[in-house]
């Protein structure tokens, strides 16, 4: 078991957030977490990425407890909805900064920039890049330490059709390379052919956990989206 989540809870203002949630994830799964706005999708991903502290419950990733952030961040690459990069600096500067913190040789930056076609933008400041390109830099940053698990929070939010296709192609590509992926979406149609498993959150509760085929035939799908 790669990820084990047990009664993980985070509640904001006694109403919203994530109510006790438990599930397990095997290595190599491509999971889509779906639900309407405020369903608790981002909260779940932020908890697993150690960006948020849970109110109660626990989780283990690759056998490492959620409390052990310093060890855990090497196992998880988190891509937030809005790219959080140092705007005033170049693409290369941003990647070098994080490579230093991860103690990764700079040769890895060259390698990864080449792989993601970022070499021509290496000296461009983040603030002049399009949202799609910023998202690509953000993904590259999350891959620096080559983590086995990747978490994407609304990876296609606010980007055009072409870039959305590109992001889904990347997800498939990472999956084929053996990465375990969890990503959130509030547009289930888009992930029909992509996810191997779907988790549905509704008002902070996990109401569906199963395969993609099962989900699109289920009452949950009809009730929430049709």
């Amino acid at each position: 078991m790669l990820i084990k989540v047990y009664n993980l809870t985070k509640i904001y203002n006694k109403k919203r957030g994530l109510f006790p949630t438990s599930f397990e994830v095997d290595s190599g799964e491509l999971i889509s977490v779906i639900g309407h706005n405020g369903a608790g999708k981002s909260t779940l991903l932020r908890l697993l990425s150690t960006n948020l502290l849970p109110d109660s419950g626990d989780a283990w990733i690759n056998g490492i407890n959620l409390k052990n952030r310093v060890a855990l961040v090497r196992k998880i690459g988190f891509v937030p909805e809005t790219p959080n990069l140092f705007d005033f600096f170049s693409v290369e500067y941003n990647l070098k900064l994080f490579a230093r913190l991860f103690k990764i040789p700079f040769s890895r930056i060259e390698e990864i920039m080449k792989e993601f076609n970022l070499l021509s933008f290496r000296n461009s400041k983040i603030q002049i890049l399009s949202k799609g390109l910023k998202q690509r830099v953000s993904i590259v940053r999350s891959l620096l330490s080559d983590p086995p698990i990747l978490l994407f929070d609304e990876p296609t939010s606010g980007i055009d059709y072409e870039m959305t296709k590109e992001i889904y192609r990347l997800l498939k590509d990472f999956h084929s390379k053996g990465k375990t992926i969890m990503f959130t979406s509030h547009r289930p149609e888009e992930i029909k052919t992509l996810a191997t498993r779907i988790l549905v959150l509704h008002q902070g509760n996990l109401i569906f956990d199963g395969s993609s085929q099962k989900y699109f035939k289920s009452k949950t799908y009809e009730e929430l989206y049709l």
Binding site: N51, V70, A71
Partner: peptide, 14 residues
């Protein structure tokens, strides 16, 4: 505000 601290806390930095 720009969630840069969040990004830094995604690294092994203490």
């Amino acid at each position: 505000e720009k969630k840069l601290l969040q990004a830094l806390l995604q690294t092994p930095m203490r």
